[in-house]
Structure formats: C-alpha cells, structure tokens
Design a protein around this nucleic acid. Structure first.
Length: 215
DNA sequence: GGCCAGGACACCA
DNA sequence: TGGTGTCATGGC
C-alpha cells in the first residue's frame, strides 16, 4: 500500500493550492465531469459556454432539453452521442430527488458510489469526482495525471484506474476539502510538469523525488 | 497532419 | 477479471 500523505504535503508545499473545480455550481461540475472524459478541458469549455447560454446550468432547464439538443450543445467536447445520453441519465436520476443533493446523500449513504456507477456512462473516475466535488466526500481520484505522477515517483506497474486506486490510501483524517485540494494539485501539477520527459528534469521534479526518498 | 486529452463500455478469451 | 477496439472534437 502506498501512503498519499507525503505526496500531498509536498504538492501543497510547492504548488498554489485552491478549492478547485472550474465551475460556479455543482450542476456545472456534474456536466463538466462527464464532458471531460478522455477530453481536453479546452474542448469542454466550449460545450459549457453553449450549455450556460441555454440553461444557466439550472437543473430543471437541463432536464427539459431533449437528447438531441444536449448532443448538439456538447458536440465540441467529442463523444457527444454517449456523453449526451449520460447527462440525460444523470439528470433524470437527480430529478427523482427533486435535485436535492443532501437528500440523495442521506438516501444512499455508503452505497452512493455503487449507485453512481450504475448510471449509464459513469465509471470509476467520474463516480469518484462526483463523490468528492458534488457530494463532499473523501476519495482518492486515481486519474491519468495521478497515474503518471505516482509512476514517475517509482510506483511500478500501474495498470489502470482501479489498480492505482486500490494501492494508494489517504490519511485517515483526510477531509473533503483536502481530497478536493489533492486532486486539484495533482491535475495542476500534471498539466505543468508531466507533459514530457524534458519537464521531468527540472529542479522542481528533482526535489520531489529527492525529498520523497528521504522518508 | 498526426497525436492526444482529467474515460466508459461492449466484446472477447 | 483483464486486455482491446470504438466513440469524436479541437488544440498543438
């Protein structure tokens, strides 16, 4: 098992930290988390602009859109046929609870992750993102940036999301604010330093390895 | 012009 | 259970 504490502390020490998911509401986060699946965030932004113009991200207005309308609005982020169906599925589910997120949290309690995974188009990563950023839970999000980071730190044979997720554990007293910040730091860090081997050689990464191996 | 991005899923052995 | 092909757009 791999403790995440040292990695989190190091990132927090060297990176600007913030409560991060680039959105103004949880409805926008939900949509963004679906649109960003295997997609550059820049492309997601174009779709979010379209959706905001049409709905202001009011859940009832999003639900009122037809599948074809949604697919047309989110076209710039790719995979729009499937992502459109996923957005439809998620918002119909939310509507069953009158878009009351607290009610959903109480209803499913420990089984919320399982419930999210049962929704069409919601897999391991998106479920964790929703748990952390929408339902204020505490989960390690083992996305591609995390896989690359831990791989560079010497963790071998990271096969996929589940593989890394099952090997990394968060501190027992980690709260949702820290879980949010951790993922934010990993993504920001990944965008900045894990693009290629050239950036790997800068002093920041060197210090990362060095300090990490001291522990 | 090719490569790739903060995945998910059906299908196959 | 685990590996592979497919879905798609736009930036670099």
């Amino acid at each position: 098992m791999i403790p995440a504490a040292a990695v989190y502390d190091h990132l927090k020490k060297h990176m600007p930290t913030h409560q991060w998911w680039p959105a103004e509401s949880k409805w926008e986060i939900i949509i963004g988390s679906i649109l960003v699946q295997n997609t550059n965030w820049k492309n997601v932004e174009y779709s979010l602009v379209n959706l905001k113009e049409k709905t202001l991200f009011e859940p009832s207005k999003i639900t009122a859109l037809s599948l074809e309308e949604i697919q047309d609005l989110i076209r710039p982020s790719g995979f729009y046929v499937n992502k459109g169906k996923t957005i439809k599925a998620v918002f119909s589910w939310l509507e069953e609870y009158d878009f009351d997120l607290k009610d959903i949290e109480k209803t499913y309690d420990q089984q919320l992750r399982e419930q999210l995974l049962s929704l069409r188009g919601i897999g391991e990563e998106t479920a964790d993102v929703l748990l952390v950023y929408v339902f204020d839970g505490v989960e390690f999000i083992a996305d591609r940036y995390a896989q690359r980071l831990f791989s560079r730190l010497g963790v071998e044979e990271i096969k996929n999301y589940k593989n890394l997720k099952s090997r990394v554990y968060l501190p027992a007293d980690f709260n949702t604010k820290q879980a949010k910040a951790f993922h934010a730091l990993i993504v920001d860090f990944g965008r900045e330093f894990l693009k290629n081997d050239e950036t790997w050689n800068n002093s920041f990464m060197s210090s990362f390895i060095f300090e990490d191996k001291q522990n």
